[in-house]
């Protein structure tokens, strides 16, 4: 009976843990907070630095995850296309390098150079930004619409619907969402899912 009791307690603990994790973070319509994070060039970057922006494409991504790697070129292309239109990409690496050694700041600098990133690649070194946003995986996109009331979350999810082959993606969720904002419309869908790597956090 004692064993049974332990099992019940453990199961409840697992459930409680799952709920606390999923209950955090932004939903579409929430106002996203700004951040100040170090870029691969050593400078600090915030959303508010972009005075002329109409919105922001915040992408939690990293070096080591094959799903993130598969999207690197696409993220670069999206920034090249949409930054001049007022929607810059800000990529954030949320991983703890102690758990995921390939995701250290130095490794980020190397990768950004190798791939000629045209966007800031920021390091969430205190792991304080991704929990606020509610990012759970890499890559994980938050499209923000700059309004008078603040930076409103307009779309959360995947970049498109084919991680393996950009040419085969027949739904470009992120680009469609940006186009919707540019036409003063609400993105549809405004929330999608994709497989990704967990965000690596040291065990307490």
């Amino acid at each position: 009976m004692k064993q049974m009791k332990n099992i019940v307690i453990l199961t409840i603990a697992i459930f409680a843990f799952s709920f606390t994790v999923s209950a955090q973070g932004y939903a579409v319509g929430d106002m996203a907070s700004d951040f100040k994070l170090k870029n691969v060039d050593g400078k600090m970057v915030s959303l508010s630095d972009y005075k002329d922006a109409k919105g922001y494409i915040v992408i939690f991504t990293c070096n080591h995850c094959p799903y993130s790697v598969a999207y690197e070129d696409r993220i670069n292309d999206i920034n090249k296309k949409y930054a001049p239109l007022g929607y810059p990409v800000l990529a954030i690496n949320p991983n703890d390098p102690a758990v995921s050694p390939g995701d250290s700041f130095d490794a980020m600098v190397v990768r950004a150079k190798e791939k000629d990133f045209t966007f800031p690649y920021l390091f969430d070194d205190k792991q304080s930004v991704f929990p606020k946003y509610g990012a759970t995986r890499t890559p994980h996109v938050y499209l923000l619409d700059k309004t008078d009331a603040g930076n409103k979350v307009a779309y959360i999810g995947a970049i498109d619907n084919n991680h393996q082959d950009a040419a085969a993606a027949d739904q470009k969720f992120l680009e469609d969402a940006i186009e919707a904002l540019r036409n003063n419309k609400q993105p549809e869908p405004n929330f999608t899912k994709a497989i990704g790597c967990t965000i690596k956090v040291a065990k307490k």
Binding site: S18, S22, T136, R137, G157, A158, N161, N162, H163, Q164, D165, A168, A169, Q171, F173, T192, K193, A194, I195, G196, C197, T198, I199
Partner: peptide, 20 residues
């Protein structure tokens, strides 16, 4: 199956898509 946006919810609506 690249259409993960469709099948992740069918496996479980609470799944964000991260593994494990």
């Amino acid at each position: 199956d690249p259409k993960s946006n469709i099948w992740i919810d069918k496996i479980d609506p609470s799944w964000s898509g991260a593994i494990p």
